[in-house]
Design a protein around this nucleic acid. Structure first.
Lengths: 152, 152
DNA sequence: CAAATAATCTATTAAATTGATGGATTTAAT
DNA sequence: ATTAAATCCATCAATTTAATAGATTATTTG
């Protein structure tokens, strides 16, 4: 299960994606729009900024904004910052490989092989889905819903 | 990342799969073979037993064994017992659905849609991979290795 | 029946992680 | 100079994780 922090991070970056091009967004605004504790959100945004996904400006007219286009930031990137590796085992992580302590022989560990597949499957999705994709998907669902209503 | 507990659970059930048909296996044996703390393993095995995946016998000649054939127990089942739902969000879990508190509208939540795909992908793998599959896979890797050695 | 064996139950615990909060400080705009 | 924001620093309660110790119950066997 994703942590609360991860959910907040996704929702926050999604807000920034929606507002992209319209100047910085206030932490307080994001917090209110998505019902998150403002102070906790601060921590999260700072972390994302320090990893190069966001930029910020201080003082009046300041706030947060995406460091790149919404189509150039993936969910995988966001999640790795706040949750660590996508892999279910350290020994199948590409970004943060680490040996499993109790493992006798990594090359013949069958659990590892399966978990490698799992990692592959989730990474394929999360590393190919951008913030822009998510926005588009949400929108087209909304339109689909409208269409359905009109059709009744 | 899987918890230590989950790793232990997988390794332990795998040992029981390997020994299936040869009578009960001692907790102490499993613990030693896979280098896990015996007392912690007790807790785990009991939990798996209480969920119907394992059976046990007390006293001399006792121990643990699989409640079903290794080909009839999936990694998904084992993991759900010790780790809870496979889904990355409660709102996309089939077995343990729960609403997300902060969510405005589940039907239009874009994050949810993506995470549904992620759940689907991992469940497809873990719910279709049995303990028998894992054993076979490990073995065939070993044989592949041998063949390679002989070929040199 | 007694002794030995092995799981099971009860309980406690240390350490780490999670999910926050409060207040002082720095940076930038007007 | 004032105001608006992010940023830094420090702390914290609750929960989860990963265990351990010891008493108890069930089973086999001699």
């Amino acid at each position: 299960m994703l942590s609360q922090k991860a959910k907040y991070a996704l929702k926050a970056t999604l807000v920034l994606a929606k507002e992209f091009g319209h100047g910085p967004v206030l932490i307080a605004d994001i917090a209110q729009r998505e019902r998150m504790p403002r102070k906790f959100l601060e921590v999260i945004l700072l972390e994302l900024r320090n990893h190069g996904l966001l930029q910020s400006r201080k003082g009046k007219g300041g706030g947060y904004f995406l460091a790149r286009q919404p189509s150039q930031i993936t969910l995988g990137e966001v999640l790795r910052v706040v949750e660590g590796p996508l892999a279910p085992l350290p020994c199948v992580s590409k970004v943060a490989y680490r040996r499993c302590d109790e493992c006798y022989d990594e090359r013949t560990c069958a659990i590892r092989m399966v978990m490698k597949d799992v990692r592959e499957a989730t990474a394929r999705i999360l590393d190919s889905t951008t913030l822009a994709d998510v926005l588009k998907r949400a929108e087209s669902t909304l339109h689909g819903r409208d269409a359905l209503i009109y059709a009744i």
